[in-house]
Design a protein around this nucleic acid. Structure first.
Lengths: 247, 247
DNA sequence: TAGTGGTCTAGACCACGGG
DNA sequence: CCGTGGTCTAGACCACTAT
């Protein structure tokens, strides 16, 4: 059974997607829709609010609601912890800690993170393996002020990303995706050629305005990609474009 | 002025972000919150529904609402039309049409697009320049069945992406981001070195189950990146991680 | 079975902003 | 001004599910 506001949402969505209602076109006002669907205005409002939140319509007081002219072209990327991702895909994940060192933030990293020079940090480097093949290098900085428990954590059994997600309840985050050429060290670790195109995900996470962690995860370009659906609900995606991050 | 449901939303968001309410912890039921905020249950419900939609809480009938244990780690990437993006960033955008040809879908592309062999297509290739420097190569296939108007469009004054967005009201889309090494032709066009790491965005768009267009946009890795905020509402992002796609 | 969320109503007042 | 959306109320019934 679908609720009334869901039905209204889908009906209007369909009208827009099919081109029945053109961009810029004004759609019926709440009272009219309420009459059409024989429901209260609040129910209509719930559907229209959801449509507006998705960017499919634009709502203006006094003027009315309009089919969005500016086609929103954004995509939701699932950026999962590597171990979780590998598990979900049915692959075996393993990792090796290459470095674990307590340091103080130097000038260059301080500028990068926008945190004060000299702050105590835990610097980690580890190699992730999927089905026994190197899949990613993780270079991470954890701010010890923000996550004091990390000081005594060896990450021997739980990968840093997973551990942090469990420790730090919530955060703001910023993601950047870049393409870079593998330098000598990276190539050696990933068992690929020097100069090979790599996909790097940079993620900085904050809590209450303070950096929790900063991480660069570098994947070999020939074995990794990011994929995102425009509509999270969409399931009927062709296999050939399906996520293949763990191949 | 912030509305009551906004205040409730923010209060709970803060409690979760600060760690005051731990993951898995049960939060007050709707009636209790309604009493606390001296508002109706519907108002509380609106706030909690929004929190649930963002994945910050999980709601279960009879059991109650709980702080989400599985930290969602997804990001919203704005994937804009290059010309629009450049304009927004205050850069000058130009493009050159390198190829425009009506063909029939060959076996390899048909498999890639999951469309029938022999379907009529418009194949485009163009070079995008930002501030006079090559910024991207766009290789595009437009299905003429889905967009018959494209047959007579020269794209002399409007870039294909922009034109299509105006023509095709809405669609499902699939995005893939890859790192690839520049081949000879790509390197020449982008005025970079052969083998240089490039960031490729692949986008396939559907309408009513039929492919509208398939495009590969390849950017030089040293001049481009994708960036996304975890929270779309978040504005206080450090400059050094800000979008620099048009630099 | 009883507690909780999901949905809905038939009003209401107000803020905004186009005419 | 006054039409439209934004918000809110004080109930109500129902579906689900933990106990």
């Amino acid at each position: 059974m679908v609720s009334i506001h869901q039905k209204i949402f889908r009906d209007i969505e369909t009208k827009i997607m099919s081109g029945d209602w053109q961009p810029g076109q004004r759609i019926p006002i709440e009272h009219e829709l309420a009459a059409e669907y024989r429901c209260s205005r609040m129910t209509v409002n719930k559907a229209l609010s959801a449509l507006a939140e998705r960017g499919m319509i634009v709502r203006r007081r006094k003027a009315g609601s309009f089919v969005a002219t500016q086609q929103i072209d954004r995509t939701v990327m699932d950026i999962q912890d590597i171990s979780t991702e590998a598990e979900l895909a049915g692959y075996e994940h393993d990792y090796r800690m290459l470095m674990r060192r307590i340091e103080r933030l130097d000038a260059s990293d301080a500028a990068l993170l926008r945190e004060p020079v000299g702050a105590e940090i835990l610097r980690l480097q580890c190699l992730h393996l999927v089905d026994g093949k190197p899949n990613a290098i993780e270079r991470r900085i954890i701010m010890l002020d923000a996550v004091p428990l990390a000081r005594d954590e060896t990450f021997a059994s739980v990968p840093p990303a997973k551990w942090l997600l469990e420790q730090v309840p919530w955060s703001k985050a910023r993601h950047v995706i870049r393409a870079v050429s593998a330098d000598a060290a990276t190539a050696r670790l990933l068992e690929t050629e020097r100069g090979e195109a790599c996909l790097t995900l940079i993620r900085q996470t904050w809590q209450n305005g303070h950096t929790v962690t900063y991480v660069e995860i570098t994947h070999p370009g020939d074995r990794f990609q990011f994929a995102g659906d425009f509509q999270p609900a969409e399931k009927e995606v062709p296999d050939h474009l399906a996520r293949r991050s763990a191949t």
